[in-house]
Design a protein around this nucleic acid. Structure first.
Length: 578
RNA sequence: CGGGGUGUGGCGCAGUUGGUAGCGCGCGGCGUUUGGGACGCUGAGGUCGGAGGUUCGAGUCCUCUCACCCCGACCA
């Protein structure tokens, strides 16, 4: 490709309001352009990257028996009504009516369509197991898109769906995907961890997320450096201390003016945070008031609380709602509240004589004890794990890292097949629901995440497997002296004939412009010729990732580039590798 | 949805107490240059996000509105 004809110009300066490195660089390097909030065009260079990512995904999905297909982006609302998600999914799903006043939706995922297909096509255990996938546009009207291609509203995702007769079959497909995903992310050059995750709106029994570590990640993962335990913070647990063994003391009210926070309370009474009980109030989607109690030194994890309370969602309660159940903001206590689901953390069950609120302003109560003074409706782990907390499996301190979710795998089970009636007949002629799994990778997000992990102050440093082109070729010198251009033209044709992808900067620009653009775009190998190199009949070859260049005779450029490319590819695809 | 911020030429920005819009980069032409974002001359390009209002006069003041960005809520 000649840069003089390339659609899309590099930008010397990025728009002032973009923050993420990947967002800045992808704009500057002419990979993407915004159309609206969370909606992007992929320019030719960006599209090449995404297509390479998708091709790697395709190869690995095919390798585990996946069959590629394509399902529609516009769905009749009916199949979403059948699964129950037409009602349960909120405004992130966009709905509209067609000219016949029929309810339609824009696809945010494709479980319903696959299940609909499965009930038509699959009748017998003889047809199972099956694995289908597609790479298709999704629309999710996110309340807040941000960060370039990391979090967008319109995006492209590879989603695969496994169909099996039983859990054992699902386990195999789940494991196959796990392995395939590891190969995919290794091949595109991502540094990642696999963590246990919440199953969220998908339902289902198990889920893992593939997390690329990045300071700009939106998720937090807890990792144990000692034993390898890793979980999304939403579900991460930690080893609890043994229950304290001390006699239960009688309750006693104590005046605590202005002690509306746990810290103020502990300071005022001169006690550790761990001797206080903190009340946190929520209103559940069901309309129920959820009264969570946790020890003062811990924080409530809303995902865990949501599960413990069996709510689909929680919102912080208002002052009026809190007073309506007989509690008092800042001085809340589970003792004596009414019309509320009381959920206590294990820490509250296991720590006697906690100081809690007295449900009246300015007063707390000493020596409250769950079970004696009030009956919790649920005792559960609702505590957020933090960096430094002991690992649940080995007890060593864990670390917390920010990460970007680049892939996930879900065991759906029979949630959708039961709802839509996707059954098969077994050897005895008995009907059973198909056991399903779903597995996603966002190709645009993967591309942006690669940039997050592979850039320097000059621009992007693409892993060779996903670079827009393998080689940036350029000539420098004056336009009058045609020797460098002619040499570069010859190299361009030689490289292309050798099957090497070349982005040829044939523009009549100064050296600085060409070098800076080459660095910005970040193709892994740069080949340049100039009057200086031509004096010795040589070209300069430089790795984007290296500081030093080497010089080779013009006739050796193609084989030299070939060798360097082979090494770069081997590093990412070879089993051994660094 | 809450909080904060920004909208002035393609990009980055300036614009005073309200007085008829400017700078850098980029873009076209000519010339000089040519190994890390050159220089000179010249030229094109803006209903100042939109609507309404105050005023003799609004980029500037007021009201409403739209878009985008950041934080949070939210989220396969």
């Amino acid at each position: 490709m000649r840069m003089s004809h390339l659609f899309g110009r590099t930008l010397r300066e990025a728009p002032g309001d973009v923050e993420l490195p990947s967002h800045r660089l992808m704009l500057r390097a002419a990979l993407i352009r915004p159309l609206g909030a969370g909606i992007y065009s992929l320019l030719p260079l960006g599209w090449r990257v995404v297509r390479k990512v998708e091709q790697i995904i395709r190869e690995e999905m095919n390798a585990i028996g996946g069959q590629e297909m394509l399902m529609p982006v516009v769905h009749p609302a009916d199949i979403w009504r059948e699964s129950g998600r037409y009602e349960s999914v909120g405004p992130e799903m966009s709905r509209f009516k067609d000219r016949g006043e029929r309810d339609m939706v824009l696809a945010m995922t494709h479980e319903e369509v696959v299940t609909d297909l499965a009930r038509q096509e699959i009748n017998s255990y003889r047809q199972l197991p099956m694995l289908v996938y597609h790479i298709q546009t999704k629309w999710r009207d996110e309340p807040r898109s941000r960060g370039g291609l990391i979090r967008v509203r319109e995006f492209t995702m590879k989603d695969s769906y496994s169909l099996d007769r039983d859990e054992a079959g699902l386990d195999v497909q789940y494991h196959n995907h796990w392995r395939a995903y590891e190969r995919i992310f290794r091949r595109v050059g991502l540094d990642f961890v696999v963590v246990g995750a919440d199953t969220g709106m998908m339902g289902g029994s198990a889920s893992h997320e593939f997390m690329a570590l990045s300071p700009y990640g939106e998720d937090i993962v807890l990792i144990c450096p000692s034993c390898g335990y890793a979980d999304n913070r939403e579900v991460a647990t930690f080893r609890r201390e043994a229950p304290a063994n001390e006699p239960l003391l009688p309750m006693e009210d104590v005046e605590t003016p202005n002690a509306t926070t746990i810290q103020a309370l502990a300071d005022y009474l001169q006690i550790p945070l761990a001797k206080t009980a903190k009340a946190v109030f929520f209103k559940g989607d069901s309309g129920r008031f959820v009264f969570a109690v946790i020890r003062g030194d811990l924080e409530v994890n809303e995902t865990k609380l949501r599960k413990a309370a069996r709510e689909t969602g929680l919102t912080p309660a208002t002052t009026e709602e809190i007073r309506a159940i007989g509690a008092e903001p800042g001085y809340g206590s589970p003792v004596g509240v009414r019309d509320a689901l009381v959920v206590i953390d294990e820490s509250v069950r296991d720590t006697p004589n906690l100081v809690a609120g007295a449900n009246r302003p300015g007063w707390h109560t000493r020596n409250t004890n769950a079970g004696r003074d009030y009956q919790p409706d649920v005792v559960a782990d609702i505590a957020a794990a933090e960096a430094g907390f002991p690992c649940p499996t080995c007890g060593e301190p864990m670390i917390a890292e920010r990460a970007i979710e680049v892939g996930n795998i879900f065991k759906l089970g029979t949630r959708y097949s039961k709802a839509l009636g996707a059954d098969y007949l077994d050897e005895e002629g008995q009907s059973h629901p198909i056991v399903m799994g779903s597995y996603g990778i966002g190709s645009g997000r993967v591309s942006a995440t690669i940039v997050e992990q592979h850039h320097d102050e000059r621009g992007i440093v693409w892993p060779v497997t996903v670079a827009p082109y393998e080689v940036s070729l350029l000539w420098i010198g004056s336009a009058e002296d045609t020797a460098p251009q002619e040499a570069a033209d010859r190299l361009y044709h030689e490289l292309e004939e050798a099957g090497i992808e070349v982005l040829y900067d044939d523009r009549n620009e100064r050296a600085g412009v060409k070098f800076n653009d080459a660095d910005l775009i970040g193709n892994p190998i740069r080949v340049s010729v100039s009057p200086r190199t031509l004096e010795r009949g040589e070209a300069e070859i430089k790795l984007r990732s290296a500081a030093e260049a080497q010089f080779v005779p013009l006739s050796e450029v193609v084989p030299a580039v070939r060798v360097m490319l082979d090494e770069l590819y081997a590093r990412l695809t070879g089993e051994a590798a660094d």
